[in-house]
């Protein structure tokens, strides 16, 4: 990879210009408005990063997101293989899944909060429901995409049905599952934050709600900025894991040669 300093300089300049512009607007024309200046936000970011509450919030947010994602992946892949392997199952669930797919988990948030209260468990259930459907559907597609010749070859070599599932069907469904996970991982983080913000579940979402309700705007902005960085880390991490696990697949082999 060639190092090109010029675009980097413009990019850094762009970020700096945005921050300076923000500071000028907040100090000048918008001095009476609730918009805090960038310097105040940076200051309260420093304060917030020094509190143990912040770090336990961060741990709760990441922990709930990962737990929800992990359980959803496990359940989604198992259910997806089941549904994808048996035709009647697939047709029976098609309409139901297609109906539920475009409905975001925030819709059932009031119900889950009512039943479970503002707890970590509530956030986890919400993340699970938000992530499991796309994973099921992608797994079903992946199972269907399995090369029938590979399947028949495995069968004529005398492999048993569970072995075919584990060695032929699952690997060929992996890229589909990978795509689903890449979409689901940032979504898990977003849902955890939503569950905290609207449902009072533990984590950064709840802190943001409290900062807003208390009128502590610098902290509010600082926490939202932290979420922005966290979101980028989540996206980067999933891409990295996907590339590591699927390095053998065509779509990734290309990238390795380039």
């Amino acid at each position: 990879m060639k190092f090109r300093p010029k675009p980097l300089i413009t990019s850094v300049a762009g970020i700096l210009a945005a921050i300076v512009l923000w500071q000028l607007i907040a100090v000048g024309p918008a001095a009476d408005s609730p918009l805090p200046p960038a310097s105040a936000v940076a200051e309260s970011l420093g304060t917030v990063l020094g509190t143990s509450l912040f770090w336990s919030d961060l741990a709760a947010t990441v922990g709930i997101a990962l737990l929800g994602l992990g359980t959803a992946a496990l359940a989604g892949v198992v259910l997806g293989i089941l549904v994808g392997s048996f035709e009647p199952f697939r047709y029976a669930t098609l309409a139901v899944l297609e109906f539920l797919k475009p409905i975001p988990p925030i819709v059932i948030l009031p119900l889950i909060v009512l039943v479970l209260g503002p707890t970590g468990q509530m956030s986890w259930v919400l993340v699970f429901f938000g992530c499991v459907l796309p994973i099921i559907m992608q797994t079903v597609d992946g199972v269907h995409d399995t090369d029938p010749v590979a399947r028949d070859t495995a069968r004529s070599y005398g492999l048993k049905e569970p072995e075919i599932l584990a060695r032929v069907v699952l690997p060929s469904a992996m890229p589909f599952i990978g795509t689903a996970m890449r979409v689901a991982a940032p979504a898990a983080l977003v849902i955890t934050v939503v569950a905290g913000l609207l449902g009072g579940g533990p984590g950064l979402g709840r802190s943001i709600y409290q900062a807003q309700a208390a009128g502590d705007y610098p902290t509010l902005y600082a926490l939202v900025a932290v979420l922005g960085v966290l979101g980028l880390l989540f996206q980067g991490a999933t891409r990295l894991v996907e590339g590591k696990l699927l390095h053998w697949h065509e779509s990734f082999r290309e990238a390795a040669h380039a």
Binding site: T10, S11, A13, G14, I15, A17, A18, I106, L189, V190, V193, V194, L197, L198, G205, I208, Y209, A211, Q212, L220, V224, A225, L227, G228, V229, L230, G231, L232, F234, Q235
Partner: peptide, 19 residues
């Protein structure tokens, strides 16, 4: 100029912009 800024803003959960 804008790309890094956009990617940062995109990382923020949309609902967190509401407060």
């Amino acid at each position: 100029i804008l790309e890094p800024l956009i990617h940062f803003l995109r990382g923020i959960p949309p609902v967190a912009l509401v407060p």
